[in-house]
Design a protein around this nucleic acid. Structure first.
Length: 414
RNA sequence: GGACAGUUGGGUGAGUUGGCUGAAACCACACCCCUGCUAAGGGUGCGUGCUCGAAAGGGUACCGAGGGUUCGAAUCCCUCACUGUCCGCCA
């Protein structure tokens, strides 16, 4: 959630900044109005409550002293009655405020490039030269068929479309990649965690998936739980509603989890192959950081993910997202896009974001800064998406006969 | 799934004949003093959110969550969640 007090004091600036993310000034006007309403409603209510409290105290005293209380009682009865509508008004004002506030995206950093969509993202650098093929490289789904690696049909039979089954070497490669990623992250100081793959609504609100993006989540109705769309949710919320000591920062965490997404709104996109599945595996990094060091940690996370791709010998590029392509919670995001020779294009394989205090405010994650409690910064990033790494290995390491080499660094794991 | 018990501040834990308890005491922690050596003594401070205030300080809310009774609830009632124990079931 954005800082409403900041919005109130710096409306024009804030409104300009959020334009980058496509938020209308009008919406912010409304929000500001609701914030003022709530304040006013609370002030009126609290004044009466104060009176009620002190008179009730007096009432008790009179009772004990055996004094007459009939006058006080009728006064209090009147007060009580006049409090009811104020209470209702305050409740409504709060509801109205949050129903809007929770749907406003984070402020992008000043450094974020302007732009409407992914076409205007900015390439920062390329790493590794794509190899040249003396044959026409195949797409991964064709290679999967040749090698019997992926059973798309039976995945659909077991669940529904956008589910698949990995077989033999491919299944093993998946397991090996997870280990490789976790080990690499551990070397950078990320502590491995094994977390629930389901999450309750409060946690999902903490990281920003709810209430706005409920349609993207698989929900278990009877239990009031959701399948996690990313390990960012459990990892970040590990410290939900906690106050950490300054010296406990940063907390660096990593976890392997499957991720579940309905992919609502991407109908027809990437339907062939395993680029976009309802369930995919991912190893995630999350950092809970002191505000002063979140930029430094962000760079470290980008470097870590990029280094992993380099170690796998996978050509990729580092891309800074423009305002229009930035996610809801992110102040800044760098994507790593891996080269897919079969598709002849770069495709996202990792996304690293600094959400600043946006998630921390929702999830109430603070730290003691001397006497005061301050919001932490939270960061998250994939290192890496497992399924897409398999796709990248297949396409980049394919031979003319359709067989696939295993990258050197993975051989000791296989 | 069934039965019973419980859920208070960083921890242990009082308070459950409703008011003087936002919360005793102890521990932990921070600062200060004494002392002078590996141990101890004394003092002060020490929950969170919102809000008013330049600050000092004040108001309000929170004793698992939500609702109810009442002039007034940590204390009474209802619903739910969670924890513990026993039974059942089970990888």
């Amino acid at each position: 959630m954005i800082d409403l007090k900041y919005l109130q004091k710096n409306f024009d600036e804030a409104s300009l900044t959020l334009q980058k993310k496509g938020v209308e000034a009008e919406t912010l006007q409304t929000l500001q109005g609701l914030f003022a309403d709530l304040k006013q409603a609370n002030q009126a209510l609290e004044a009466l409550k104060a009176e009620q409290n002190s008179l009730s105290k007096l009432f008790g005293q009179h009772k004990r002293d055996g004094k007459d209380t009939t006058v006080l009682k009728s006064e209090l009865d009147g007060l009580k009655e006049s409090i009811v509508p104020l209470q209702e008004r305050a409740r409504e004002a709060e509801e109205a405020l949050y129903s809007v506030a929770l749907t406003i995206p984070n402020f992008p950093d000043d450094s974020v490039p302007k732009g409407a969509d992914e076409a205007e993202n900015v390439e920062i650098r390329k790493v590794l030269e794509p190899r040249t093929f003396d044959f026409v490289p195949l797409e991964h789904w064709a290679l999967a068929e040749k090698n019997g690696w992926i059973d798309f049909e039976r995945g659909v039979k077991l669940a529904k479309s956008r589910f698949s089954v990995l077989r033999g070497e491919a299944a093993r490669l998946e397991r090996v990649l997870i280990n490789f990623f976790l080990d690499a992250n551990a070397k950078k100081g990320f502590i491995e965690q094994s977390v629930p793959f389901m999450s309750n609504a409060a946690m999902l609100q903490g990281t920003g998936q709810l209430p706005k993006f409920e349609d993207d989540l698989f929900k278990i109705e009877e239990e009031n739980l959701y399948l996690i769309p990313t390990a960012e949710v459990p990892l970040t919320n590990l410290y939900h509603d906690e106050i950490l000591k300054a010296e406990e920062l940063p907390r660096l965490m990593t976890a392997y989890t499957p991720c579940f997404r309905k992919e609502a709104g991407s109908a027809g996109r990437d339907t062939r192959g395993m680029i976009r599945q309802h369930q995919f595996n991912k190893v995630e990094m999350v950092a809970i950081a002191h505000p002063d060091s979140s930029d430094e940690i962000f760079d470290m996370m980008v470097e870590n993910a990029s280094d992993i791709l380099t170690a796998l010998g996978l050509p990729h590029r580092v891309v800074e997202l423009c305002g229009g392509d930035l996610g809801f919670s992110a102040a800044r995001t760098i994507d790593l896009e891996v080269w897919l020779p079969g598709q002849n294009k770069y495709r996202e394989i990792s996304s690293i974001s600094n959400t600043r205090d946006f998630q921390a405010r929702r999830a109430k994650i603070r730290f003691k800064d001397g006497k005061k409690n301050r919001l932490v910064h939270t960061l998250n990033g994939s290192a890496l998406a497992v399924g897409r790494t398999i796709v990248a290995i297949m396409e980049n390491y394919q031979n003319a006969d359709g067989s696939i080499e295993i990258p050197e660094v993975l051989k000791k794991y296989m």
